[in-house]
Amino acid sequence: MQAILIGAVEGSRVALDAFLRAPDWRLAAVATLPPDLSHRHSDFVDLAAPAAAAGVDTIFVRNVNSPEFIDTLDTLAADMVFVIGWSQLCGPAFRAAAGGRVVGYHPAPLPRLRGRAVIPWTILLDEKITASTLFYIDEDVDSGDILGQRFFHVAPDETAGSLYRKHMAALADLLDETLPRLARGNMSGTVQDPRFATWATRRRPEDGRIDWNRPAHEVQRLIRAAGRPYPGAFSTCGGTRIILWSAEPAPAADRHHAVPGQVLARSGEGFTVRCGDGGALVITEWETPDGSPPRPHSILGAA
């Protein structure tokens, strides 16, 4: 069978590798973002080089719903189109040109958490179990029939990076299971039950701003959820933005009297900040313009 792969992130690279492993599949083309639009995804991956190494044509596309790209879909006439790691919705003309066989990927247990930024939302919502999902793309958002799901636990100390890696491993397994079935002509999927649907809204870099009046465990959860490959949780000190990548609970925080956001101490391992519930966090990885942590007694907060 012949497919077109559309994407521009790590999951797209995982999918490319899966197609190259699948003996019954051939990629007619890989469609991806031109380099000048790489900023659309914080986890952007260049697919042009690995596609060229595999002898697969690369198509740079800015808008998959443009008439020019729709004509390209018509011309290539692939059996199926896989959209894995792409931020634009696939419109009616796109789906028609693909013959209605458009497969998407979502790092959530659909129908739960349809929408955007679901890896950060999984951590922010303190989900205990999640899933990677392959599904048919239809006229709505993440609502089509499910082709396959791989469930796994979310660790209490899960970070965006560790959860992202779990999803990439699950996606590889899903594709290895699903591609042979599709090649045999078994295209059936399971209808989603709308009674269990929830929706996750888009998150922007500014949503990573820390409110030190919140309890320590909530601040730590935001730091875990907003971390790499995403822009990071942040605060400011004297107008300087500080990105906080990693934190852990501070011992004996109740022995310190300070206001929320105040830096209690600084050591070789990091610096300690008071939170709104009387607890404190030791910031163990951070990023500032000069690489130095705030001084003790500094106040972190809004610029």
Rank of each mutant, 00 (worst) to 15 (best):
Ile6Phe: 12
Ala15Glu: 00
Arg21Gly: 03
Pro23Gln: 07
Trp25Arg: 13
Val30Trp: 01
Pro34Gln: 15
Arg40Phe: 09
Val45Trp: 02
Val45Asn: 03
Leu47Ile: 10
Pro50Asp: 10
Ala51Gln: 04
Asn63Ser: 09
Glu68Gln: 14
Leu73Trp: 07
Leu73Val: 13
Ala78Cys: 08
Asp79Lys: 04
Phe82Arg: 07
Val83Trp: 04
Gly85Phe: 08
Trp86Asn: 05
Gln88Asn: 05
Ala97Tyr: 05
Ala97Leu: 06
Ala98His: 03
Gly99Glu: 09
Gly100Cys: 08
Val102Ala: 12
Arg114His: 03
Trp121Val: 10
Leu134Asp: 06
Leu134Glu: 03
Tyr136Pro: 05
Asp138Lys: 12
Ser143Asp: 13
Glu158Ala: 15
Glu158Met: 15
Ala160Ser: 14
Ala160Trp: 04
Tyr164His: 15
Tyr164Asp: 11
His167Met: 08
Asp173His: 03
Leu179Asn: 03
Leu182Thr: 06
Ala183Ile: 10
Gly185Ile: 00
Thr190Ser: 09
Val191Phe: 02
Asp193Leu: 10
Arg203Leu: 12
Ala216Cys: 04
His217Glu: 15
Leu222Cys: 05
Arg224Ile: 01
Arg224Trp: 05
Ala226His: 01
Pro231Arg: 11
Trp245Val: 09
His257Leu: 14
His257Lys: 06
Ala265Trp: 11
Ala265Gly: 03
Arg266Gln: 09
Ser267Trp: 00
Gly270Trp: 03
Val273Trp: 07
Arg274Gly: 02
Val282Ala: 09
Glu285Cys: 11
Trp286Lys: 00
Trp286Glu: 01
